[in-house]
């Protein structure tokens, strides 16, 4: 808060050292994710990066978000990405054409924006100090603020998740069926069972997209179904 009261960078606290080490691991895993030529390894390194970010949330005392991160990202999003890799018949070994031809332009853009943003951020927040003495994101605090002040966005989000679920099912139906998009929500269940691989992935997808609403709180469950 105050520039005069903040400690310097040369005497880091234990939390800062832990944050720095986990941050280096996270950044290294992210770099390997975007540069490796083995597609399945990229998904597995993404697990390391997302788990590292969950540890950073814990160090910032936002524990509820850390566990949501582990559940949603590490638990389901990466599994979905692996499903997608398998269903699009991604090569298991090294694939020479993982990077496109404009990787040098991409590297230039990324390094330029990294330098500019690091310069701006360090210049702006050089003397800003976060006090971590009280827990800011325990489950009680998060639940209280979520269901006291953010109920309406929460319900809107559950409706959006329902729309995403129906959309994923409609998108992944087989080609030969009659194009009855309006009654897709009513007839979706038998078509998912009948349709082979892609629809099963989409049902997994919709299961995951329903997961955060169920994970955040139980009130999100019945609300969209009444709409249907």
């Amino acid at each position: 808060m105050l520039a005069a009261a903040s400690p310097g960078f040369l005497s880091p606290t234990g939390v800062e050292i832990a944050f720095l080490l986990v941050g280096i691991v996270t950044l290294g895993a992210a770099v390997v994710t975007v540069t490796t030529r083995q597609l399945v390894h990229a998904a597995l390194w993404l697990v390391v990066a997302l788990g590292g970010i969950a540890v950073e949330y814990l160090l910032l005392t936002a524990e509820f978000i850390a566990w949501v991160q582990v559940l949603i990202y590490v638990g389901s999003v990466v599994v979905l990405l692996l499903f997608g890799l398998m269903l699009t018949k991604a090569p298991i070994g090294r694939s020479p054409d993982a990077d496109s031809g404009n990787r040098w332009a991409a590297l230039t853009v990324a390094i330029a924006s990294a330098v500019a943003l690091v310069w701006v951020v360090v210049d702006a927040f050089r003397a800003t100090w976060i006090r971590l003495d009280t827990v800011q994101g325990s489950t009680e605090v998060s639940g209280r603020s979520l269901f006291q002040y953010w109920v309406l966005p929460f319900e809107a989000l559950s409706v959006l998740l329902l729309a995403a679920l129906v959309g994923a099912i409609v998108l992944s139906r087989k080609k030969g069926e009659p194009p009855a998009a309006s009654e897709a929500s009513a007839t979706s269940t038998p078509s998912v069972i009948a349709a082979p691989p892609a629809a099963s992935a989409a049902s997994a997808a919709s299961g995951t997209s329903a997961a955060p609403a169920g994970g955040d709180g139980d009130t999100a469950g019945p609300a969209p179904r009444e709409d249907r």
Binding site: I65, Y73, L80, A168, P212, D216
Partner: peptide, 10 residues
């Protein structure tokens, strides 16, 4: 996080 899950599904 919830929006990202929906986005990855679609």
């Amino acid at each position: 996080i919830a929006l990202a899950a929906a986005e990855i599904g679609i």
